[in-house]
Design a binder for these strands. Structure first.
Length: 419
DNA sequence: CTTAGGG
DNA sequence: CCCTAAG
């Protein structure tokens, strides 16, 4: 049911009446005109950005076109888009990346195996994070000669209308960590705060694929809120593209910084809803433990941010840490962050007690935590007590465990803030 | 809603 | 990562 079927509605608002007389050709023409006009707009640095917004399909519904970004992106070349910097803090790269994933999503619809292929190829960013640059380059070159042709999945061939996409090798290079010292200066914290913006660019492709379908008990209840928060979060990067509709447990309003007016049409909300219904249908067939499949691996970068956050807010202030250090990471709820900290403690504990095994593990398993970070975790662990250690490792250390255990449980030293 | 704890 | 209970 398009906008042209509304003729039959007698009491439709007068504002829409004008569309009855508009022919399809006219609409198309106006779109084309707008597009070419806008091309010049975008080239012209003097034009303000509101034009861009209305151009990018957000004003489409006003023309009677129910165009989604997906349809829109297929036949259109975004390569000319300049980096309109401050606007929604989204760069050209974000646009391209978003579109790529969107298209990928559509193409791979229902093909879960691809996710596994990606996983088995270790395309996830985590593995490359603490490789020295030469290693990474080697890896990249390996990937370039990829026999399965997987590279093409993320390069131009999948986005016919999009030229100038980033090649995966570049994408990989960007995942290389800035090999910094383990000391946190306030400068560095600021840095990591700023570099948050490109967070999602580092996510492995597999996290985008397959994150569409998900089941959960309270999904119905939280559907609307979830959809809204999803849209909100994705607006941070790109107002039109939302690739992750995985329902969360609840709305994340408080974690999401809401900056602009709601620009989403009901179409998109409805589509997310129908997507959800599909997952209901699929639920029966894939109800088994594929929960873990949707995990997003923690990058070393994220771990460092976590450590920084804890050193600044203290253990237990996870909402604060989320807001200040994982602001742009739409996933990573405070609970996730806490869980990660718990795991880090466990890791540091293990590392502390048997160096050899930990060392070997570090060599064999790619996704272990770099040593420096583990050291920092241990420092913080001794600085901030966490009840996690109650079960297995109490009273081992005579020097400080006494003071720790005295305040271990509920005595909150969380208030320790250093500015 | 936020946090802690267990699964 | 998910779920639940407690404040």
């Amino acid at each position: 049911m398009g906008p042209f079927g509304i003729d039959t509605t007698p009491d439709f608002p007068d504002t829409f009446a004008g569309f009855k007389s508009v022919s399809v050709e006219n609409v198309c023409h106006s779109v084309e005109d707008k597009m070419s006009d806008m091309k010049h707009f975008l080239m012209d640095p003097n034009h303000d950005n509101t034009a861009v917004d209305s151009f990018l399909g957000l004003g489409m519904e006003n023309m009677g076109l129910s165009s989604t970004m997906e349809e829109f992106s297929h036949g259109f070349d975004f390569s000319f888009l300049p980096d309109f910097g401050g606007l929604n803090s989204c760069s050209t790269k974000d646009v391209e990346a978003g579109l790529k994933f969107e298209i990928l999503d559509g193409f791979l619809d229902g093909v879960d195996e691809v996710e596994d292929i990606y996983a088995s190829h270790d395309l996830s960013s985590i593995g490359n994070h603490f490789l020295p640059e030469t290693e990474v380059k080697k890896k990249v070159s390996e990937l370039d000669g990829d026999p399965y042709g997987l590279m093409n999945l993320s390069s131009e061939s999948f986005s016919p209308g999009i030229s100038g996409s980033i090649r995966l090798s570049e994408w990989l290079k960007e995942t290389v960590p800035h090999a910094e010292s383990q000391n946190v200066s306030s400068e560095k914290v600021k840095d990591s705060l700023d570099s948050n913006e490109s967070e999602d660019d580092k996510k492995p492709l597999s996290t985008f694929i397959g994150s569409w379908v998900k089941q959960g008990k309270n999904r119905k209840k939280n559907l609307l809120n979830t959809a809204c928060s999803r849209l909100d979060s994705s607006r941070e990067r790109m107002s039109c593209v939302s690739y992750d509709f995985r329902p969360r447990k609840g709305p994340m309003k408080k974690y999401i910084h809401i900056s602009s007016e709601n620009t989403f049409s009901d179409d998109q909300l409805a589509s997310s809803e129908s997507e959800d219904d599909i997952s209901v249908v699929t639920k029966t067939s894939r109800t088994r433990s594929d929960r873990r499949k949707h995990q997003r691996l923690w990058t070393v970068d994220e771990v460092m941010k976590l450590v920084d956050g804890i050193s600044h807010f203290g253990v237990g202030k996870w909402t604060d840490i989320k807001n200040h250090f994982f602001h742009s990471a739409a996933h990573r709820t405070p609970v996730d962050i806490r869980d990660k900290w718990r795991n880090l403690l466990k890791a540091s504990y293990n590392d502390k007690h048997n160096y050899r095994e930990a060392e070997e593990k570090r060599k064999s398993v790619a996704r272990s935590i770099p040593k420096e970070i583990l050291h920092r975790v241990r420092e913080l662990a001794s600085l901030h007590p966490y009840p996690f250690s109650k079960s297995s490792c109490f009273v081992h250390d005579s020097s400080r465990s006494r003071s720790d255990s005295s305040r271990s449980r509920s005595t909150s030293r969380k208030k320790k803030k250093r500015s």
